[in-house]
């Protein structure tokens, strides 16, 4: 197991190198930060001065080498816009994004899994149909639409939740629901299909024949076997929440990494975009590693050589 984890960590370094190279190249061919960060009436002299001061007048390979040699020392450069270390800016926003992502994950788990189990157990009943219609809606409704509608109804009209910002739990509920809806719906559908598959197996019939309580059969025998693909999906979703909460964070004015990334992409703030992508990619790869390790724990048949 230890050797497996070490191997995966080595792969992580390679993945991060690849991600850095791709992001660096894409950013540098997508636009010039000087024209976006300087005032409109900036003179040619001012634009050249800016490019020289930030090294943008150097060949691309020199800029990439400088970026990499800084990155291995943990220095991802200073933000062009904020004039602060890029990594510190991103890390400063990371707790907010992590809080939102974990809240969304919890909502996905506590709504999606029970809904899927109940649907599977009451297959083809009105409960099953309603649950599946609900999950279909959850997967179809765009997050931005749901977010705005929740603000209009639950904040503006009924004034139950604050419409934006980060604060106590009341601030967290609407953005977390908005972010988790798609994932919760997918988890519900996956749980349902997995449980239907497992509940039809011989050993479940045997367990029932032994006289075990329905709850014990479901919890101990069925769910444990049906849950592996759900864990994979939840792991991927958590990675997605960390990197892909841009829309939700923007709608709810949530001060996380996604909002910073969006602002930085628009202004071609290379160091901040690079730091964001590297951090999110690292999180994504590590979460996947944890999911794989969790497999071994949950299913003794899986062993890593």
């Amino acid at each position: 197991m230890g050797q497996y984890i070490l191997g995966r960590l080595y792969q992580t370094v390679l993945v991060l190198f690849g991600v850095s190279a791709v992001v660096f190249l894409l950013l540098h061919i997508s636009g010039d930060p000087a024209v976006l960060l300087l005032p409109q009436d900036a003179t040619k002299e001012a634009i050249e001065q800016f490019r020289h001061a930030h090294g943008f007048d150097q060949p691309l390979y020199v800029q990439f080498y400088r970026f990499l040699s800084g990155a291995v020392r943990g220095d991802l450069g200073n933000s062009l816009k904020f004039n602060q270390p890029a990594l510190a800016l991103v890390l400063d926003r990371f707790p907010a994004t992590l809080e939102l992502a974990l809240a969304a994950l919890v909502i996905s788990i506590v709504t999606g899994i029970p809904l899927g189990i109940i649907s599977a157990m009451k297959r083809n009943s009105p409960v099953d149909t309603s649950a599946m219609v609900l999950s279909m809606l959850g997967q179809s409704v765009p997050a931005f639409w749901l977010g705005i509608m929740m603000i209009l109804l639950l904040s503006v009209k009924w004034q139950i939740f604050p419409p934006f910002g980060r604060g106590g739990i009341s601030h967290l509920i609407l953005p977390a629901i908005s972010l988790s809806t798609w994932s919760a719906a997918r988890v519900a559908r996956l749980t349902r299909s997995g449980m239907i598959d497992v509940l039809g197996q011989e050993y479940i019939r045997t367990a029932r024949a032994k006289g075990l309580a329905n709850l014990v059969v479901v919890q101990r025998h069925a769910l444990k076997n049906a849950i592996l693909p759900i864990i994979t999906v939840l792991g991927l979703d958590l990675g997605g929440f960390l990197g892909g909460a841009v829309i939700t964070e923007t709608i709810f004015a949530w001060p996380g990494v996604g909002q910073l990334a969006m602002q930085s992409i628009y202004s071609r703030d290379y160091p901040v975009v690079q730091a964001t992508v590297l951090l999110v990619a690292t999180g994504y790869v590590l979460i996947n590693l944890l999911v794989d390790v969790a497999y071994a724990y949950l299913n003794p048949r899986i062993r890593f050589g």
Binding site: I151, V156, P163, F164, A253, M262
Partner: peptide, 18 residues
């Protein structure tokens, strides 16, 4: 000063006395 990038949310902030 509150940072509210989305137009609809900014308007909601005004409507809810935030």
């Amino acid at each position: 000063f509150r940072i509210i990038p989305e137009d609809a949310t900014r308007i909601a902030a005004l409507q809810t006395a935030n």
